[in-house]
Computed example of a mutant assay.
Amino acid sequence: MSYVVGFGNLYPKHVHHRGASIPNNRVKYNCKGEWKWRDSPKPNPNIVVGAMVAGPDKNDEFRDVRTNYNYTEPTLAGNAGLVASLVALSGVRTGIDINSMFSAVPPMFPTSPPPPAPWTP
């Protein structure tokens, strides 16, 4: 079982993703109208190729059910590690120094003031 959508012969077909589960039939659906697609037992009409879903539970079981997002939700946080790993494995030189790539990012908190100068009488 592949947890990357579109990879291999057996991958999730009921991904919990609005763009994947609603057909491209040029009809605008309201929020309640989209529920019929979310709750449909049919496979998604659109494949989100490359998205990695959450995967199996602690018992190594996977339920390919769109309404159970614990298994089939492709999150940004879950896919970030996959993308970073694939970039690293590609061997492509990006010109980015991984040891200093975040040096231009300002700190989240102001820096502490310097300690007071020693007192001299």
Rank of each mutant, 00 (worst) to 15 (best):
S2F: 10
S2E: 01
S2W: 14
Y3L: 08
V5L: 04
F7K: 14
L10K: 14
H16W: 05
H16N: 07
H17T: 03
R18K: 15
G19E: 11
G19R: 15
A20G: 13
S21C: 14
S21R: 15
I22V: 15
N24P: 11
N24G: 14
N25Y: 09
R26H: 15
V27Q: 06
V27F: 08
K28A: 10
Y29T: 14
N30M: 09
C31Y: 07
C31D: 12
C31Q: 11
K32H: 01
K32A: 04
G33W: 05
G33Y: 06
G33S: 05
E34N: 05
W35T: 13
W37T: 08
R38D: 03
D39E: 07
P41L: 04
K42W: 12
P43A: 00
P45S: 12
N46V: 08
I47A: 05
I47D: 03
I47Q: 08
V49T: 03
V49A: 01
V49P: 01
G50A: 01
G50C: 04
G50I: 10
A51S: 05
M52G: 12
M52K: 12
V53Q: 04
A54H: 11
P56C: 10
D57K: 01
K58T: 15
F62M: 03
F62A: 02
D64L: 06
D64K: 10
D64S: 03
D64G: 07
V65A: 00
V65H: 01
R66K: 03
N68W: 04
N70G: 14
Y71C: 12
Y71H: 10
Y71T: 05
E73D: 09
E73T: 11
P74W: 00
T75C: 03
T75N: 07
T75F: 02
L76T: 05
L76F: 03
G78I: 15
G78H: 07
A80I: 12
L82Y: 06
L82S: 02
L82K: 13
V83C: 04
A84M: 08
S85W: 12
S85V: 15
L86K: 13
V87R: 12
V87N: 06
A88I: 15
S90G: 00
S90A: 00
G91S: 08
G91R: 14
R93H: 07
T94D: 06
G95A: 00
I96A: 01
D97H: 11
I98T: 14
S100G: 03
S100R: 10
M101C: 13
M101K: 00
S103L: 09
S103R: 10
S103Q: 13
V105H: 00
P106H: 10
P106V: 09
P106M: 05
P107A: 09
M108T: 14
F109V: 07
F109K: 01
P110T: 08
P110E: 13
P110R: 06
P113M: 06
P114V: 04
P114H: 01
P116W: 05
P116L: 11
A117P: 15
P118Y: 02
P118E: 04
W119P: 03
T120V: 08
T120C: 06
